[in-house]
Design a protein around this nucleic acid. Structure first.
Lengths: 200, 200, 200, 200
DNA sequence: AATGAATGAGTCTTCATTCAT
DNA sequence: AATGAATGAAGACTCATTCAT
């Protein structure tokens, strides 16, 4: 069945299956078998489309990164929001329904841990980490002094990642994520309010 | 060599070797062989002293938790510090030289990821997470209203964990940890200063 | 080679290899390696087709039982023999060429010993034991009183198993089996003759 | 503690422990550890007194054989019984309380299975098998013709071993052994009675 | 005499990869 | 394009043996 465009479709199906498998069994217990079974395909298909398990894992992380980036772009590029709004949108992009899902959150954490010993994953993780920081700093810079903006961006990035980590590991993930988003925004607001006073 | 007191010694040696192995190879690539080779012992020794790999891993996490707890107790119990100082001490306890070491930080992250699919590790992680929050909240409560203290404790816990996570994954871990500790303390100070103003 | 019908073929090949291995090395010294080497396959194939060594062992015992049962059915069902003939046929089924082979006899004994500590094997052994007794009793009942039939069935079953055991362990197994079959039939004949006299 | 006569004592204690271990766990699952634990000694003691596990196992089988032989001698040498009585005594010696115990019966069977692949055990088993036959034949010879005696001895030996095997593997071992002993004696009586008639 | 700490070869099992079809 | 049969290296675990004390 030599259909055209089969390759992207199959690849995405396998990436989705990988996300499901990692969410259910963990990265450690995710095997060619669990992935291919979830995808409803044979085990050989992975080598066929990705060359090996490692490449499929990397492609899956890439997909998560793209989703995150896209969530931000969707929010920001439609309009030209003021800096504070933009900061809120960055927070929101990091706490979308997709990112909150056990599927995504468990996978992220597994990948981060793995990234310490896998250069390809480390590279992706580094890009992601810097991107969050840059986005935050850019917006803060419009409201605060250079030093204050740098500090604020680092604190906010840490708080976002920290809340995200704690929520992902919590048993009441859903609820925790809700509070987390609120407290991140509150932190931003307090920071700006405080910055105003200090400026004047 | 039937020496008395051999058991605690060997167990600690194996825990140390596990930390080194996880730091170097990751939890996923840490095997009975890597651990026993680092410890300079045979592979059978692990089953002999811990029953199995799983129990050794759990004992190692327990050791990390104890180190963390002890770092805090050392700082707090010798004196009765004021609340703000106490909050700083909590931050410091989470950023000791030991905790900053790749050995500890990489191991923590590996364990957290694994905890999502391992009830025993999940339990330990949960205890640790709640302990940090409780300690922070207790101190904040002496300075802020109940609601404000709760929010502050959650934000601070997230920031500590987040900084810790970002630093551990960073290539300039040492430097990042330094800044992280400073910014956590700064956040606490700002929060309290702000809280004062709101109260008055 | 995705041929259809590969599974039953491979399973039988592995069962045959298991019989050979147990006959040559004993159940205790039969390993995944000895079996797969005899079968001319890789070690992984056993888990692939049976799930594990245990299941392969059980399947092999089952095969021996089926062979025994089939040997009896072949002899009995084609005709409706008189009771005495039927008793002889039961004896013959227990001393077929296959059952006499070191391959079968050594394996039986290994399995019986193991059955004392393995519920699954114990169940199979129990079925086999009861089946022999039932078959004998049914035939004797047509010739003797109830009590005499019970006794005769028990004695005959014991004699068959005992001869079988002694022959299997003997160095001149082939010769011993020959005599054993003859003496079992003689015992049956004598018993019936004697029963006649007692009846009349 | 260089006590004199320690060696025989320790050896017997270890043989007893081996019997218990084999009865409880089976020969396959009987390890240096299970034996030494039951004996309340260290694992090293076995090498110390027997050289290795294998030698201990063989010594244990030897002990079982001696018990069997002694049971027979006790019954026969006290008096000079007539042949039929003597045959009954042989049966009784094979069904003493000790031989009926799971401890002895399970061990016997394990050893027999192992004997197929262990020359030392095979030798012991062969001696035992021949001894039973010889004893039976000697007594039968006083009552029957040479050929009849040979047949009778073989049948009786098979029946004894067969009953013993079936009883050992039965769930109601105790009860089965009782019936077994009775039916063996009955077989002997019937045989002699029949032999009388044929002789006259 | 007796211990038990330590070893490491051997076992079963898992699983990513290969490849004929 | 897609399968899944087959491989074999690597994993954790077991256990008889050794040996310093």
């Amino acid at each position: 069945m030599p259909k055209i465009g089969m390759k992207p479709l199959r690849r995405q199906q396998l990436i989705d299956a990988t996300l499901e498998s990692v969410a259910e069994y963990g990265l450690q217990n995710t095997t060619i078998m669990t992935i291919s079974r979830i995808a409803g395909m044979s085990s050989g298909i992975i080598s066929h489309y990705f060359g090996g398990k490692r490449e499929l894992i990397e492609a899956t992380v890439n997909y998560l990164l793209e989703q995150l980036q896209q969530a931000l772009l969707e929010r920001i590029t439609q309009e030209k929001p003021p800096a504070q709004t933009r900061l809120h949108l960055i927070v929101e992009a990091n706490f979308t329904q997709f990112q909150r899902s056990p599927l995504a959150s468990k996978t992220w954490l597994s990948f981060w841990a793995q990234s310490m010993h896998d250069p390809a994953l480390a590279r992706l993780q580094s890009i992601n980490s810097k991107r969050l920081y840059s986005n935050l700093k850019y917006s803060y810079r419009q409201l605060l002094s250079k030093e204050a903006a740098t500090n604020a961006a680092k604190q906010t990035a840490a708080m976002i990642d920290g809340f995200w980590l704690r929520s992902a590991l919590s048993k009441q993930a859903e609820q925790e994520f809700e509070i987390a988003e609120h407290l991140c925004k509150k932190f931003i607001n307090d920071l700006i309010k405080q910055g105003d006073k200090l400026c004047h």
